[in-house]
Amino acid sequence: MAYPSQVGPLAIAHRGGAGLAPENTLAAFARSTALGIRYLETDVRLTSDGQLACFHDESLDRVTSARGPVRHRTMAQLRRLGVGGEPIVTLTEALEAFPHSRFTVDLKEAAAIEPMARVLAQRSVGERVCVAGAWDGWLSRLRELAPHAHTALGWRSLTTLISCARAGVSAPRWVRTAEFAHVPVSLGRLPVFVDRLVDKAHAHGIRVIVWTVDDPTLMDRLLDAGVDGIITDRPDLLRENYIRRGIWEPMPTLTVEPIPRAAG
């Protein structure tokens, strides 16, 4: 049940599986879990009434019919807007709807640290969540408030680890601040991941998760390089890859009741 308990490479559905259903919605999470995906990735933004919405962007503009910052809306207002015809839900609702799934959660803002810690306060919840996508100081504070939660490396530690790998030198011991390194394949046209990063990270007991990978050929190259997991918008393609390699570990499929739309 604990987040890091799976031994083989993790298959993680990015934004719930954004290539298969509207991102960060119960529909996306349900589609991926129906495929047998154990790990779901989502993002959280703080609403004006202090709730953690499963939502990636700072602004509503890209995926809703509204404009402006998420933080200026209540959760009820966001739920009425929806994404691709699906309601926006809270992190707690997602965790409750998929009690056997493990979640990677990108923490998008400092104001969300304490609300996140409250969500993770129950050990049975905190142990199946890995918090990522944040600065080292944010994650350190979160671990103080919710010590049983898991985290990935913060941006400073991750940047140092990547820089050392690219230079072919050993990373300092202090980079080992977490169990996972969530590494982008590239930033724009700039390649970030290098094969020797895996050995450098493993020397510190850090597991390397690479995002966001939707191309089957690249999936093969990364798995051949020894990565410990892949985050993808196309969990269906990653599942096919894992089955072909004989490393697929599906979870039992479960039925989820949809979160109803608010009236109005």
Rank of each mutant, 00 (worst) to 15 (best):
P184I: 02
S48C: 15
A34V: 06
A111T: 15
P172M: 07
G68A: 07
V185I: 09
I206E: 02
A112Y: 01
A117W: 04
T33R: 14
A181M: 05
L218D: 15
T160C: 12
I113Q: 10
L81Q: 00
W155F: 08
A53K: 09
R166M: 09
A132V: 15
T33A: 11
I12T: 09
A171M: 11
W135R: 15
R176M: 06
G264R: 05
R173V: 07
D43Y: 05
G205M: 05
T90D: 08
Q122M: 00
R67E: 12
A11N: 03
E96C: 05
A111L: 10
S32K: 01
I113V: 15
G229M: 07
R79W: 13
S140L: 10
L107P: 06
R239A: 14
G188A: 09
Y3N: 01
R118M: 06
L139M: 06
F55T: 06
S59G: 08
D195P: 07
H56K: 10
R73E: 02
R207W: 00
P252T: 13
F55V: 00
L158F: 10
A110L: 01
G19R: 06
E23N: 02
R176A: 13
T90P: 06
T92N: 15
A171I: 10
P172H: 02
Y242V: 02
A171Y: 05
A53N: 12
G246P: 09
V105Y: 04
W138S: 03
P87H: 13
